[in-house]
Nucleic acid binder design. Structure first.
Lengths: 223, 223
DNA sequence: TCCCCCAAACTCGTCCGACAATCCCTGCAA
DNA sequence: TTGCAGGGATTGTCGGACGAGTTTGGGGGA
């Protein structure tokens, strides 16, 4: 029984929570899919209460949507929602990048962001969707952590970045043209301690991402 | 107040959720206060599961903090957390104000924001903390709704504005000097459809608020 | 008298079982 | 084909139970 093991880490709801997020990245769950509580109870071997708590946390973060008396479903972004989200991420990531740049001198920050960028720039990593996704998450997480704004760190996971990443993973063109050069620009600006430059670079990156997404066919979106 | 998000057809957990948020504004609960599940079960006459769900939603929004094997408590902001939060709100509110200004022509937007501002500017309303808080929430909510960015609307209630408002309510000086003139500037910029101007006005307002909070004595903050 | 340590009371995390409410699919009838 | 009733599936909510960790009050030792 994984009870004791689970309790140490994050508890049963955490197991389900992480299991679903991970399953999303691994393709086990796809946008629109139904998440039946009884199934999850069986799959993760936890009580139904824990499943419900995990689901409501996921719903709070916008990853799944819960409808009254209907199964929770993996949320799927419409074209408009995606546009809104990208616009919001532009602002938030710009803010995060600026803060990070302003604090690059403190503690081990310079080293941390350098490492995060290094693994992102590794061509080996770039070939593997899963590894690249992880490296990218680490990069962003490091950037936010450097900024040392606790409230921003709390809020960032509550955006739906994960959804964007997963929903459009099939359309690799979205990433390929854009990603590495942009990340390099962001990293260098942060490394220089240039706040405004980092903010601009981050915003530019997100805007390019948004432009690429705009060009995707309707089939990539929900409703 | 994030009522819109949770209020609709939400059952027992919603009752508890709204009861706590409302109690916060009414002074029934104060920052730092312990929220024992058993007590809430009795007070709201719902099952413990519903209480827990409400608490975890409140925790997700940052209004309460849940401690392992210890009662949940109404979160109380430290000086640093407040500073972080204000910096974040500056960015988000600036964004919201800009979007609102850009869309003032659409639908009934001009009328809506005018009404929201009118009740905010009513001296009668300003004397009553509760009524003023409601009017201010309406103003902000209208502003966000005008922007029509669904993701921003989803994220805004997950900041801890409510906490700031409640925690420093005793120190009226924070508000008095600042509020009305700033709100007027924001409103007028939005009404003119001047995006950048509205963004600046909103940011200025938040920054002034932050300055006022910085001057508060340590007693106003948590550990 | 004062301080430290331990046992009991609290409280939360989790599981289980139960029941009603609601949704939705299926099959029957017009 | 269309409308409708019935039943299975699924969620919403409750109550009880137990383990684990925290807090607290009292007794023993210095």
């Amino acid at each position: 029984m994984p009870k004791t093991l689970a309790a140490k880490t994050d508890g049963s709801p955490g197991v389900v929570y992480r299991g679903i997020v991970d399953g999303l990245y691994r393709g086990r769950y796809v946008p629109g899919q139904r998440l039946v509580e009884a199934d999850l109870t069986r799959d993760f071997e936890v009580g139904r209460g824990s499943v419900r708590e995990a689901l409501s946390r996921l719903a709070a973060e916008g990853l799944v949507s819960m409808n009254l008396h209907r199964s929770a479903t993996i949320r799927s972004l419409s074209r408009n929602e995606t546009r809104d989200l990208v616009a919001l991420l532009e602002v938030l990531n710009g803010f995060a990048a600026r803060l990070a740049a302003e604090r690059v001198e403190e503690g081990a920050n310079r080293k941390l962001i350098a490492e995060a960028y290094a693994s992102l720039a590794d061509v080996e990593v770039q070939r593997d969707f899963l590894r690249f996704a992880r490296a990218r998450n680490t990069f962003y997480k490091t950037m936010v952590a450097m900024g040392a704004n606790h409230e921003l760190a709390r809020l960032m996971p509550r955006t739906n970045v994960d959804l964007v990443r997963v929903q459009f993973r099939a359309y690799t063109t979205v990433d390929d043209d854009v990603r590495i050069e942009d990340y390099r620009a962001i990293y260098e600006a942060i490394n220089e301690g240039a706040g405004r430059k980092a903010e601009t670079a981050a915003k530019t990156h997100i805007r390019r991402l948004g432009d690429a997404i705009d060009k995707l066919p309707d089939a990539a979106f929900a409703g």
